[in-house]
Amino acid sequence: MRHEGAAVEARALSDEQRETALKLVAKYPNPRSAILPLLFLVQSVEGYVTETGMREVAGIIGLEPAQVLATASFYTMLKKAPQGDYLISVCRNIACTHLGGRKVIAALEDRLGVTAGETTEDGKFTLESAECLATCDGAPSLQVNYEDFYRMSAVEAVALVGRLERGEQVTSFRGEAVKSAREISYETAVAGLQAPGTAGELSERTIGGESPRSDTAPGTRPKETGEGSPNA
């Protein structure tokens, strides 16, 4: 044991959540594959990936905490600082920008008194600019806790904030109820967990499989499978 002699280790997950974590691990042939779902599970507890949570994930899947951090820090949806109850992600990509998306960001920055990337003081909102959300048919578009809002003008976006502030139940353009940030983290963590497909049998059969992992590959240029450089 690494932390021999230390007092009982701080826990981020409840017993029930730990059980869920073990089920998530069992979905995969290799425990490490469960790292993203486990980190979403941790995020569902306090709204972000806490240090205690990362340690616990490391313990569950047999990694060092630093390895867990190295993976977590790569992914934008895994938040490493406290977040608002509502994460507003406004697309800043091509179609949205050309149709006024940046004005929506500016209006929300004004309304919330933060710059994109920050959380309001009352902890209610986090504003971020996002890359293409694949809702360009509704540009300019945004997501609130990953539910989609199409064709948002600056005025409409500000009005949306007002409704969330007043605690109204808000539904997305597709009719989905906006959940809290923690609920949606939980939902992301357990996606697919109900399905009966397990990887148990698989893990035995995979023994000996060895991946040509990216971080062990030498830095030579790979051959391309697709089309070559069109400008070549």
Binding site: P29, N30, P31, R32, S33, A34, I35, L36, I61, A70, T71, F74, Y75, T206, G209, E210, S211, P212, R213, S214, D215, A217, P218, T220, P222, K223, T225
Partner: peptide
Amino acid sequence: DSLEGFRGQPRLRPPFPAVKGLYG
């Protein structure tokens, strides 16, 4: 790589996934 629980960074190819992909 991401599905195996790592930072999602491209692998050197070949080998191509059709031959050596997920979990090798």
